[in-house]
């Protein structure tokens, strides 16, 4: 539903977003991951109509919304990475003010505000002053605010940074609920683990470019397959080594007592066939698995690869 094509943005001579292309499906929770300065905020600001793009298009349902700012603002709800609240406004007044900013009539806005406060679990704070809320509550209130005009797409810039694990968990369940109700969510973070369990897809960004994107499991597999295969056998190490050496997907091999480390370039099926062959030849296999990258090392690996371009 949302197509970003060849988006480019420079600050002076510095290219912050460089020919960025991405397509996001309806109902996706799409994670933008990249180190600080990668250009995530810049892309999100362009998406929210807060920065002009130098080149490129953003289309929603085949219409370039960069040419129709009113439509863009109706469709998108934006939560900045850093934001403030007004002193001397209560929670409900805060929401009503932003509703009015979208031209929503007072009674409709009140009805909606009630629903939203329930969604973000702030219904008891309705008459409290906004600046007396805790950071996590402000974050949730700001999330409710991005929803006052019922946008189809939510753009959340680093919403989880600086939150405690419980609040982060709460935020995740709210976002999941929103995605189930059909909202498309784009969320950024410089920490991959923050997004991994939440997002359906991720896009790894560095220096304003897409380094890798797609379904999160696919990305993990792509990177994992360069990890060694670890085969642990009970006995018959030599026989196992012989079989492994014959396999056409095996590149290197090292043996340490009855553990064998194999660089294996095949796909999942080839991996399964290899295991079958070992067992059928009578080798007693205790374990047979890919070494799993933890998410952080995965992330670093991708970024390193990306910089080689």
């Amino acid at each position: 539903m949302l197509e970003i094509k060849n988006l480019t943005k420079s600050y002076g001579d510095f290219k912050a977003v460089d020919d960025f292309t991405l397509s996001v499906k309806e109902g996706d929770i799409y994670g933008f991951v990249g180190p600080n300065g990668a250009g995530k905020t810049t892309i999100m600001k362009i998406l929210s109509g807060l920065l002009p793009a130098d080149a490129g298009t953003i289309t929603i349902d085949n219409e370039n919304i960069l040419k129709d700012i009113t439509r863009l603002k109706k469709t998108i709800g934006y939560m900045p990475d850093f934001f403030g609240v007004y002193d001397n406004l209560t929670v409900i007044e805060y929401l009503l003010f932003y509703s009015a900013a979208y031209g929503i009539s007072d009674d409709v806005a009140r009805e909606r505000a009630k629903e939203l406060l329930e969604l973000v679990d702030l219904q008891e704070k309705v008459n409290e002053y906004v600046d007396s809320l805790s950071r996590g509550m402000k974050q949730r209130l700001c999330l409710a605010r991005t929803l006052v005009h019922n946008p189809d797409i939510l753009i959340l810039d680093e919403p989880a940074s600086g939150l405690d694990p419980y609040t982060r968990h709460q935020l995740k369940s709210i976002l999941r609920h929103l995605s189930e109700t059909g909202k498309t969510i784009i969320i950024s973070s410089h920490i991959l683990t923050e997004l991994a369990e939440l997002c359906s897809s991720i896009c790894i960004i560095e220096k304003g470019r897409v380094i890798m994107n797609g379904n999160i499991e696919e990305i993990m597999f792509q990177v994992d397959s360069s990890n060694p295969l670890l085969v642990h056998v009970l006995d018959n190490v030599n026989k196992a080594v012989l079989i492994l050496k014959k396999n056409k997907y095996v590149r290197t091999l090292s043996v340490e007592e009855n553990k064998i480390m194999v660089t294996f370039i095949g796909r999942k099926e080839d991996e399964a066939n290899l295991l079958k062959e070992l067992i059928e030849s009578g080798v007693l296999v205790i374990s047979f698995k890919r070494e799993q990258s933890n998410l952080e090392s995965l992330f670093l690996k991708i970024i390193e690869k990306g910089s080689e371009f």
Binding site: K45, K74, A101
Partner: peptide, 13 residues
């Protein structure tokens, strides 16, 4: 300074 201008500008105002 209060970091509320961006939000204000992202609305339909």
């Amino acid at each position: 300074e209060r970091q509320t201008l961006d939000i204000l500008l992202s609305t339909q105002l």
